[in-house]
Design a protein around this nucleic acid. Structure first.
Lengths: 237, 237
DNA sequence: GAATTATGGTAACATAAATCACCTAAACAA
DNA sequence: TTGTTTAGGTGATTTATGTTACCATAATTC
């Protein structure tokens, strides 16, 4: 039995005894958790399946329990998609649909097979209204998302290809896969859409990194060999 | 006496009777407003003065009462700044420093002479903890900011100069100055930093718009003559 | 197992946009 | 006033990056 299936056994369908709760849900009382449990469903998506579709009615927020998903803006007629971010277990997506606009202004798709809890939007609204600690956590989360977007805007206008791709690989290693050696489950075009470049450019730059001995790619198993060099490129790029 | 000075007379130094309150502050009780009033100062900044500095301790959130300010990320060693957004009266900046990081991750500067209320961060934290309606409004505000950043990320990667500048002018007219004819108080380089292009490119594209009769610029007084054309360019850019 | 599609890859070429050099006029300070 | 700085502007040149075409291999589907 591998690590993944072991994790599955340890988690529970009921929020009350779930071991994978997100930061903000840890701030809830037992009765609040029981209530939240009634307004949620747990669904497993296969790789590449669409979890939320830009423009569709947003009736729920999404909590990532297992796997890896991408949040992206769909490009109109022949334009590239833009990947906003990748989310791994413990993260919540879709807070932007809580108030105001009732539709998703982005899409979400599974990059790896993923299990999510879809939580009714009204449950979350009630929690915000009645639990200040919960609200605070959500505001913090949204602020962090904001700051990250600002960084992305900066990088996109001030760094060129090497710098952006180096930054993306570091981000994936540190924040998403949380290890310097990881199975690269994103395609080159995912990587390109994440860093605002063409797929060809992503391939080219990635191969430069390999040739320079900064990165090793063994059949999709990535390992950052020279993290200092990568950070240097990310800064000056 | 002009319109501006008339407005000044109508506003008050005390939050309780202030006519310019932001959406979320309208949700507060009289006692909450009185309390907020004790933790705020009102300051007037001259054009080009720095209101908040990236990296400095963030002890307050900023409410724009009068004027126009820009929020921007400072570029390191020789890199361009990136203007995240412009804010006109009624807007709040600096929510991202409420929880987590205690420093500003952006700078704010006055584009026109501007009056702001600086509100103590602890006051706002308390309000979030105790007033669900207030929290909801803040979350909505942060979500909108997020969505706008996503749009910017999309535009930067998928649209070229014309499209981005057309979009920026439309945004300024609709959301910032709230009229099709306005005194253009931003410089060409502000415009460039807002749309992620060089100053030279901003000048060139702007002059193209003038030559095509889409836009009239009489000594800095801008008027959008052909809004349909501008919207078309912004879409297909 | 064969056929098909998706993904990764190389190289030549085209082009959008930055940079550079240089100029004018306005705003500001001495 | 006069010098000095700042903002706006034009055209030539360079460069980063996208595009196209074409191929190989891995992964699906029939």
């Amino acid at each position: 039995m591998d690590y993944t299936s072991k994790m599955e056994n340890e988690t529970a369908a009921n929020c009350l005894i779930c071991q994978n709760k997100s930061e903000c849900f840890k701030k809830l009382s037992n009765s609040e958790l029981e209530n939240a449990d009634k307004g949620k469903v747990e669904i497993t998506f296969k790789k590449k399946e669409i979890i939320a579709k830009q423009g569709a009615f947003a009736s729920h927020v999404m909590y990532i329990k297992k796997g890896l998903v991408k949040q992206y803006i769909e490009g109109a007629n022949g334009h590239k998609n833009v990947i906003i971010n990748f989310f791994s277990p413990g993260q919540i997506i879709g807070l932007s649909s809580l108030f105001g606009k009732s539709t998703f202004d982005f899409s979400v798709a599974a990059v790896e097979d993923s299990t999510l809890c879809l939580i009714d939007i009204n449950i979350v609204r009630d929690l915000i209204n009645n639990n200040g600690e919960f609200s605070s956590r959500l505001i913090q989360k949204l602020s962090e998302t904001n700051s990250y977007s600002y960084q992305q805007l900066y990088d996109l206008t001030n760094k060129q290809l090497n710098g952006r791709l180096a930054g993306a690989i570091l981000y994936l290693a540190k924040e998403v896969f949380k290890t310097r050696k990881f199975k690269m489950t994103l395609s080159r075009s995912d990587l390109a859409e994440f860093t605002g470049m063409s797929t060809m450019s992503a391939i080219r730059v990635l191969n430069d990194f390999k040739e320079e001995g900064i990165l090793v790619d063994k059949n999709g198993m990535f390992e950052i060999v020279n993290i200092n060099a990568l950070e240097q490129i990310s800064r000056t790029g």
